[in-house]
């Protein structure tokens, strides 16, 4: 089988970059919508903030796994 394309160098960085795309979009949506919700309904600030941070934590975990994986499998 002939080699069509090859990536060399710090593959971990590339992997992390790819892994960060999804959570990046997700976190943007979460906080964008959260701020919009607070602007529409300032009296519900407490509940909105709580759920916003919860969603942020869940989305962010994906990016962080992408960050840690190169350290684990990089050897």
């Amino acid at each position: 089988m002939s080699l069509l394309a090859e990536v060399t160098g710090s593959l971990g960085s590339i992997g992390y970059g790819l892994a960060a795309i999804g959570p990046g979009v997700g976190i943007g949506i979460i906080f964008g919508q959260g701020v919009q919700a607070i602007a529409r309904q300032p009296e519900a600030y407490g509940v909105i903030r709580q759920n916003m941070i919860l969603g942020f934590a869940l989305a962010e975990a994906l990016a962080l796994i992408g960050f840690v994986a190169p350290f684990v499998f990089g050897k």
């Binding site: 934590a57 869940l58 962080l64 796994i65």
Partner: peptide
Amino acid sequence: ATHAIRLFANMFA
């Protein structure tokens, strides 16, 4: 797993 990794990875990074 994510409960532990989230805290660890944030501090690690």
